[in-house]
Each structure stands twice: as structure tokens, then as C-alpha cells.
Design a protein around this nucleic acid. Structure first.
Length: 208
DNA sequence: ATTAAGATCAACT
DNA sequence: GTTGATCTTAATG
């Protein structure tokens, strides 16, 4: 691409109007897109769509709460949440204001700032494993709860979209308990054959 | 104020 | 295949 195209992209690099659609329609656009924070940049290879009020797997299924309010806001912002006592997960907000929809960033390939990513993920064995899995993805980039609500056109976390993936596969979502995790909701999207894509796992039931 | 569950990961058998 | 680590959030009393 040309220098002027780079310049026009500026800090963020996406057309917000393209995100004014339900997450399942936006998913192919995010596959292959770049998420950057500071010196680390990741090429997205796997996402999951969450569809608000019609989706039993979504945090927004039972309406607006303090945690999920950014999903009801303007698309192109970052929704972060903390789970399992130790992991931050990051989503790109989709659909117009008032409609809660988002895409969970599940896996990607670190294409810039690998040293910084490795410093944050000392246990990662391989290059492909640096940003595999939603918790690891956020950790490799250094995304925390404080980044929640950030406008991806402005930063500190930015999104850079090129064009929609021409080929991708879909399947049931990983780790989603209850009805939302079944094949009735095949809302996981990934790039075929990419080594950074996380393996499928059914939701585990906790012992009591 | 208290509690139970969770859009997970890594280590272990 | 199974399990412990760890803490925010939302629901309940």
C-alpha cells in the first residue's frame, strides 16, 4: 500500500461504518486485521461473535450492567472483562449504539514487538503460542481492564483493518457454558490452517 | 455483606 | 482427561 494510505489511516485504521452491523457479519473483517498496543502488533486469526440480547452466551443477554455497558455504546471501542480470577479478555464492539454486540479476540500472530510480548508471556513456548487463547492474546499485548472503553481509532489500543478475509471457517464457541455453547450458535470464526488458532474446548463444569 | 460462577490457562495423571 | 489458581462481577440477603 502507498505512503498516503498509511498516513490517512493515522492512529486507527478502520471505517467505523463497517462495524455498524451485528458481530457475525463483522467477523470476516476482523480476521487478518491488526490490533496494536504500543510496540506490539498482532494479526487476528480467530474471533468469537457475541450477540447481546438474543445470545444466551453473551454477557449482555440479561440487559445492561455496569460491566457490559461499553458493548451498548459506539462500535469500534474496546470491551474488556476479567474472568477466572486471572485473565483479561478483549472484544471489539459492533453494531450501532444501543445494540450490544461484540467480537472476542481469541487468537492472533505477533507480527511486531515479539520481544515485549515474550517478556509478558515467559511461559509461552512457541511463537504461535504467544497470543493463542483470549487471555494470552490480551496479555501479549499488555491489554488490561484499564483499556476498557478505549476508542480503537484513537488508542492506546488501535485497530487496523485491510479487507475482509476471503476464506474462513466457523464452528461452535469455546468454553461457553449453557445453551450459548452449542452448535446452535456456530459463531466462532478462524483462518483455515493457521498455527496460532486455539483448539476447541467444551466448557468445563466446575466441581462444588 | 456475602456468595457463586465464570467467553481461561497450565500443569499434572 | 482432570484440576488448582485466583478475583471481578452480578445476584441475593
Amino acid at each position: 500500500m502507498t505512503d498516503t494510505a498509511e498516513l490517512q489511516r493515522g492512529a486507527g485504521g478502520f471505517d467505523r461504518s463497517l462495524l455498524m452491523a451485528p458481530a457475525v457479519e463483522v467477523a470476516p473483517l476482523l480476521l487478518g486485521a491488526i490490533i496494536r498496543k504500543g510496540e506490539v502488533a498482532v494479526r487476528v486469526t480467530e474471533v468469537e461473535a457475541y450477540m447481546g440480547s438474543i445470545d444466551p452466551g453473551s454477557h449482555a443477554f440479561r440487559g445492561r450492567t455496569n460491566r457490559n455497558q461499553v458493548m451498548f455504546g459506539e462500535p469500534g471501542h474496546l470491551y474488556t472483562y476479567f474472568t477466572y480470577g486471572m485473565h483479561t479478555c478483549a472484544n471489539v464492539v459492533c453494531a450501532p449504539e444501543g445494540t450490544a454486540s461484540g467480537l472476542l479476540l481469541r487468537a492472533g500472530e505477533v507480527i511486531e514487538g515479539e520481544d515485549a510480548a515474550r517478556a509478558r508471556r515467559p511461559k509461552a513456548a512457541s511463537h504461535a503460542g504467544l497470543a493463542r487463547g483470549p487471555g494470552n492474546f490480551a496479555q501479549a499485548l499488555g491489554i488490561t481492564l484499564d483499556d476498557g472503553g478505549c476508542d480503537l481509532a484513537v488508542g492506546p489500543v488501535t485497530l487496523h483493518v485491510d479487507e475482509p478475509a476471503s476464506e474462513y471457517l466457523t464452528g461452535p464457541r469455546t468454553g461457553v457454558s449453557g445453551a450459548g455453547g452449542t452448535h446452535e450458535y456456530p459463531w466462532r470464526f478462524w483462518l483455515p490452517g493457521d498455527p496460532t488458532v486455539s483448539p476447541y474446548r467444551a466448557a468445563v463444569s466446575r466441581k462444588r
